[in-house]
Nucleic acid binder design. Structure first.
Lengths: 192, 192
DNA sequence: GGAAAAAGTGGTCATTTGACCATATTTTGT
DNA sequence: ACAAAATATGGTCAAATGACCACTTTTTCC
């Protein structure tokens, strides 16, 4: 799993072998089983996480018990609860594996040290945060303005590889529509 | 308008008078009339904006002509189209005044220089960006999980001062519901 | 101050959505 | 390999939503 991460870094930065070595020397690896939690509501998020293989979901649970997914994190992406991590306060979200997932983890102190000593990593990190901000804004815009069908089409266009890997109820949850509405949309599209 | 900005900075940072002077020396001021555009779809966002007095809205327009508001910016807040500003690419959003509004503007080069030379300003800026990220995530969660009534209640709780300053159709647009639904909700609440 | 524009609300109706249940198929786990 | 669990879809129905129109009130603009 570390060779995959090194390939990822070489593809996305011009880090030296020494820097790569420094980064991977401070990481911990962990394998999550399907449905196993990486982070649970009420906990403090203490790690920056890179998904080497697999798929995670970040979700909140309302008082009525319903789960609403705000983010999927497939391999070769990073995840964490940024507010809990920054402020070291308990999170109100959960992060769980949708399928068996291998992750790399760095403590906040270790990762901040790496950012401080490896400018290319800091640049990569900053670029990913920026892109996250742009995507969030687009997500808000789509969420308040699109029809359920347009949301599904946007999802397929944006994450074509995720469709086969997710149960429909999770996609519906992520889009903020019901499973029934989603299957109606799919039926209509198949018969167009 | 600059004294108000200086009060804002003194309240939120421990900047020296010299730093304050440096910041205000590089700003431009502008007054927007009601409904006047600060930024228009297709333009490049070239300024960081502080709202000294008044109220702005950031919105997108769909192909069918409908306007969907993703953000309100009252006095003593900052705004810009961050993606257009960072990448110097044309924006797909608009920023307009809801009422007569006084703003302070810095070019990207000037503001980056200020961030570089005034650590307290950089810290303030970073803190505001972080808070923006947390709020956006909460907004996404509310948007996909809450009923229209819960969205309205959340809006009132989060921005109590804005209710009187906005027409209902703008609040409905921001919440992603119709004016009809919003007036139904208000009717039901009044008669509870 | 007054005309025009905008806003707020109520009525009506068609459409859409979501909940619940049942059935068949697929996937998971041992 | 097979039983159990999970998923996907269809049917049904009630509730919610949004569009359109009309009227009254409030705000804006000159």
């Amino acid at each position: 799993m570390i060779p995959a991460f090194e390939t990822y870094l070489r593809t996305n930065t011009d880090l030296s072998d020494e820097a790569l070595q420094q980064i991977t020397a401070t990481t911990m690896t962990r394998t999550l089983q399907r449905n196993e939690l990486l982070l649970q509501e009420g906990q403090i998020c203490r790690h920056k996480t890179f998904i080497a293989n697999g798929l995670l979901r970040t979700f909140g649970v309302r008082e009525d018990g319903t789960e609403h997914i705000i983010q999927f994190s497939p391999e070769h992406s990073w995840t964490l609860d940024v507010e809990s991590y920054d402020r070291q306060t308990p999170t109100s979200f959960n992060i769980a594996a949708i399928e068996k997932t291998d992750v790399l983890l760095w403590t906040k102190a270790d990762f901040e040290y790496l950012l401080h000593t490896i400018p290319a990593l800091k640049n990569l990190s900053q670029e990913l945060i920026s892109r996250n901000i742009y995507n969030s804004r687009q997500r808000i815009f789509t969420s308040i303005s699109a029809t359920p069908e347009e949301k599904y089409e946007d999802f397929i266009r944006t994450y074509p590889g995720l469709l086969q890997r997710l149960p429909l109820h999770m996609i519906a949850s992520y889009l903020g529509i019901s499973l029934k509405t989603l299957t109606r949309i799919r039926h209509t599209q198949v018969h167009k």
